[in-house]
């Protein structure tokens, strides 16, 4: 599963490899939104360490056979954070690095929001929040009916779970005991207008989710050791649906974007762009 070239590494070596992949992805994220002068850097930077580990460790997919029936599914429900997903899809070989240049460009492989009709490796056309978990639940049902071992992974944003439909899906997943449904919550504490705390408080998310009867684990979403542990925890828990609640920093890796609601959906200017690449260890 995941990236075969990483098999057999020690945990320390694996962590270093994953960190480097994430770093490269962050550079691509910044390049994409800078070129397009639009898009969503904040939530892409907060999710990317998680996506890197998910694809490198868990996802059973084949970039050369993107419609393979028994592939694991991945639903980026917070579909605006598409640069993060495109960067990891390029890293995995689903799309090329040139494809990344088509982000938000007419006729592009990389649409503003992830789109299964345009991009190989995208399993759900998102962009409207609060839809991905229900869709993922459907995929999980299908896997069960097919007698397939495939899993469905869903990435949600913390702002996104304010949508009521998410809780309908949570309830249904537990009711139907779909252990092949695995959710990552990117808890970066910021949504579109402002901090979650000011828009609609969520209070104790792990407690709420536990009360719906799911397997729940909380991690630091930028500590690669904890992330790897979380991904392995997914593999070990197949009785009931599981959620990994990842505490993250919106805009992680670029100082002026970190914890800054302004960079939810704004592109850096030229000066900010150079600064971002510098901070990400990229020589221009």
């Amino acid at each position: 599963m995941g990236l075969s070239r990483l098999n057999g590494l020690s945990d320390d070596e694996l962590v270093e490899e994953l960190k480097e992949i994430s770093r490269k992805c962050r550079v691509e994220i910044i390049k994409m939104v800078y070129r397009a002068q639009a898009g969503h850097p904040g939530g892409s930077l907060s999710e990317i360490d998680l996506l890197t580990a998910l694809y490198a460790i868990n996802m059973n997919v084949n970039p050369n056979d993107t419609k393979w029936e028994d592939r694991d599914r991945f639903v980026l429900s917070k579909g605006h954070a598409s640069p993060g997903m495109y960067s990891i899809l390029a890293e995995m070989g689903f799309i090329t690095h040139e494809d990344l240049e088509s982000y938000r460009v007419l006729g592009g492989v990389c649409q503003g929001h992830v789109d299964m009709k345009h991009t190989p490796g995208v399993d759900f056309s998102a962009g409207s929040l609060g839809m991905g978990l229900s869709f993922g639940l459907g995929c999980s049902f299908a896997a069960k009916f097919d007698g397939s071992p495939r899993n469905c992974y869903v990435m949600l944003g913390d702002g996104e779970i304010q949508e009521g439909a998410v809780w309908e899906a949570m309830m249904a997943a537990r009711h139907h005991e779909l252990g092949n449904l695995k959710v990552i919550l990117d808890c970066n504490r910021i949504q579109n207008d402002d901090f979650v705390e000011s828009q609609m408080r969520l209070f104790n998310i792990p407690e709420k989710w536990s009360s719906f009867g799911w397997n729940v684990k909380e991690i630091d979403g930028h500590d690669m050791y904890q992330i790897i542990e979380g991904m392995r925890w997914f593999d070990e828990n197949n009785d009931l649906p599981s959620v990994l609640i990842a505490n993250t920093v919106k805009g992680k890796g670029v100082s002026y974007m970190e914890n800054n609601p302004k960079f939810h959906g704004a592109a850096p200017n030229e000066e900010q762009y150079s600064k971002a690449l510098l901070e990400l260890g990229e020589v221009i």
Partner: peptide
Amino acid sequence: TGTDGSSA
């Protein structure tokens, strides 16, 4: 509305 794409 533009580059957000068809979902928006």
